[in-house]
């Protein structure tokens, strides 16, 4: 059952990501991003990370995507103009990516036994557990991330403000 769900939502996720890249209109791309985010949330749920899945739906599929669509509509962005891309990309880029993916897939499949077991769901169930991890064990990365987000805001304001 798990495996079937994983395949369905994994495929949905990849298809959404491809559709995101191929669509011409920004709104369509944004809507496909919602598909990607929601199927990722299901994948988290399958791994046993309920909180992460809920946060993914609320924060990414909800808040951030609404902002995305708002901004796209406010800017009234039309469909994008396509360029054909460079020859180098077709000659080397795509075969290179394919080779890299093939190599990685081969290594993963043949050596998957050397990966350890990840335990996600067992000790991270309640909000209390989560807050213990977030505010005690991982306090420093948490705080550094908060400054990082501040920098992003600062930069966005500085870059978007009109120069007089």
């Amino acid at each position: 059952m798990h495996l079937v769900l994983f395949f369905i939502f994994g495929a949905l996720c990849v298809a959404g990501a491809l559709n995101l890249l191929l669509q011409r209109h920004p709104i369509n791309s944004a809507l496909s991003l919602i598909v990607v985010m929601t199927s990722l949330a299901v994948l988290y749920l399958l791994l046993g990370a309920e909180f992460l899945a809920a946060a993914q739906v609320i924060v990414y599929s909800g808040a951030i995507m609404v902002l995305f669509t708002f901004v796209i509509m406010l800017l009234n962005a039309g469909s994008e103009e396509r360029t054909h891309g460079s020859k180098m990309a077709y000659l080397f880029g795509f075969p290179g990516v394919a080779a890299l993916l093939g190599l990685l897939a081969f290594v993963f499949l043949s050596r998957s036994s050397s990966f350890g077991q990840a335990q996600l769901g067992e000790y991270l169930v309640t909000t209390a557990d989560l807050s213990k991890v977030l505010f005690r064990d991982l306090l420093l990365p948490f705080e550094v991330t908060s400054v990082l987000i501040l920098i992003a805001i600062l930069g966005a304001v500085a870059l978007a403000r009109k120069e007089h």
């Binding site: 990082l148 600062l154 930069g155």
Partner: peptide, 11 residues
């Protein structure tokens, strides 16, 4: 911190 640094440098 590497992402933090890179983000500042992009800006």
């Amino acid at each position: 911190s590497l992402e933090f640094l890179s983000l500042s440098l992009y800006i």
